[in-house]
């Protein structure tokens, strides 16, 4: 568990309030290392140059939207296995299917609860650990 708590998170959302909410929730869950980016275009270079263990991204953002970011991450050899959680207000069934096909690891719909966020992160991390 203590190993997990040192994970590096990248939170991507165009709204600073939403980034702050997610960051605070992560801090409360014991994840202290949280970096923020405001869209896919600023997130991608961070992901490529940094050593992130988990990506939480919104879908609807100016610049590069979250789905495109997810596709770029999966297409990048070094990032392909990065756990990605989509945290979004996008609620069309076809969109969720599209995100799943693009290789998302979890999908949380806004508005969300702290319990849901924790549950999905835990689930993704435990299935990562099982696969490793």
């Amino acid at each position: 568990m203590s190993v997990q708590r040192s994970l590096n998170f990248l939170v991507v959302d165009d709204y600073s309030t939403m980034r702050r909410i997610v960051k605070n929730l992560l801090n409360e869950l014991g994840y202290a290392n949280v970096t923020e980016a405001d869209d896919g275009a600023t997130a991608l270079p961070l992901l490529r140059s940094g050593s992130f263990d988990f990506l939480i991204t919104d879908w609807n953002m100016p610049g590069m939207p979250g789905l495109e970011l997810l596709k770029q991450v999966r297409a990048d050899e070094r990032l392909a296995k990065l756990p990605v959680l989509m945290l979004t207000a996008e609620a069309k069934r076809e969109q969720i299917v599209e995100a799943a096909q693009a290789g998302v690891n979890g999908y949380v719909i806004k508005p969300f609860t702290a319990a849901t966020l924790k549950e999905k992160i835990d689930k993704i991390l435990s299935s990562q650990a099982a696969a490793a």
Partner: peptide, 9 residues
């Protein structure tokens, strides 16, 4: 277009 996202319901 769907790729852009449509915002909340």
């Amino acid at each position: 277009t769907m790729g852009r996202g449509r915002g909340p319901v």
